[in-house]
């Protein structure tokens, strides 16, 4: 429907409006400009000043605080940071940069496994077949338990518990494998809930349409519900993977996996400063910030598509 009102409004010219006591054009502009986020010149000036003041205050805190010099020396020591990043075998220093590669490896392997396991769990909870009841119960208990237990305890449990069992094939794995297993166990519970929310967001009428074609419950889920559910949950899934990426650092508590955080630990105990941790932190940010921006873009695209399609899809 085209908006007609604006055209008809044009018949009333300015003179008529002024004669009728209307305020002259432009008299509201002073108010109007400030109302947009970062819109207009005055707003831009104000935001610039406030940003400068804010950043200045933060810097001042680091520069003028009583212990500022010591903090700079321990956390932001350029020489030590460089050594920690590159590593120096002659001094017994591990490379935090190389360690990060291991983090990325763990993250990628865990992510693929999590996406798969969580989907299986979410689907199990959805199927109403009475034969599957014990599995459904198991899925509920599993998500309840592993969402409630802190990841670090799961890592301890697997990393120290599995070797103590003396089961061939299980007890002889590396800490790298135990770390991934713990991440998968813990995160699959969260991600399964994300999937489940997505499945529930698909309207019941879609299921009715699928079933009315003769599709079984499983096929309706597979071809109609899940594709729509997964599309909806991509942004929240990425959110979980941002935290998975940084939580790979917790595997360092097992000791033998020299990933970024563990390398930083060793370096700091060798160099007697914490600059290696700063390196690790910066490297993690280099990974998580692009992922976060990417997620934002997907969400924005999703919102605009919903607004565009809002009328047609009832």
């Amino acid at each position: 429907m085209p908006v007609r009102g604006s055209r008809e409004g044009a018949y009333l010219d300015e003179q008529t409006l002024l004669a009728a006591g209307a305020p002259p054009p432009g008299s509201f502009e002073g108010n109007g400009r400030g109302s947009h986020l970062l819109g207009g010149q005055r707003a831009a000036a104000v935001s610039t000043v406030s940003t400068v003041v804010f950043i200045g205050a933060v810097i001042a805190l680091f520069v003028f605080a009583p212990g500022a010099a010591a903090v700079r020396h321990t956390f932001f020591n350029p020489q030590q940071m460089k050594q920690a990043f590159l590593g120096d075998p002659s001094k017994g220093l591990y490379s935090v940069g190389k360690g990060l590669i291991l983090n990325i490896e763990m993250f990628l392997i865990a992510e693929v496994l999590i996406l798969f396991c969580a989907l299986v769990i979410a689907v199990l909870r959805q199927l109403r077949n009475p034969v599957l009841f014990p599995f459904r119960m198991l899925a509920v208990v599993y998500t309840d338990v592993f969402r409630g237990v802190p990841l670090i305890i799961v890592i301890y449990g697997i990393g120290f518990g599995a070797p103590a069992l003396y089961i061939r094939g299980i007890s002889t794995q590396s800490d790298f494998v135990y770390g991934i297993a713990a991440l998968v166990l813990s995160y699959s519970a969260y991600v399964a809930e994300v999937y489940r929310a997505g499945i529930n967001s698909v309207h019941q009428s879609q299921v009715a349409a699928a079933r009315s074609l003769g599709l079984s419950q499983w096929k309706s889920l597979r071809f109609v519900v899940l594709p729509q559910a997964v599309r909806t949950v991509i942004p929240p899934l990425l959110n979980d993977f941002i935290s998975l990426q940084k939580d790979t650092a917790l595997v360092s508590t097992l000791g033998a996996v020299i990933e970024a955080n563990r390398a930083a630990q060793i370096d700091s105990s060798t160099l007697f400063v914490y600059s290696s941790y700063t390196v690790a932190a910066l490297l993690f940010l280099c990974l998580t910030i692009p992922l976060a921006r990417f997620t934002d873009r997907l969400i924005a695209r999703d919102v605009s598509r919903r607004l565009a399609g809002g009328r047609a899809v009832r």
Partner: peptide, 20 residues
């Protein structure tokens, strides 16, 4: 019931096409 529905077509008030 899947076998029965195969032989019956139903069209809904709200179309219910698969949007994806």
């Amino acid at each position: 019931e899947n076998a029965v529905r195969r032989h019956i077509g139903i069209v809904f008030q709200s179309f219910n096409l698969f949007p994806h």
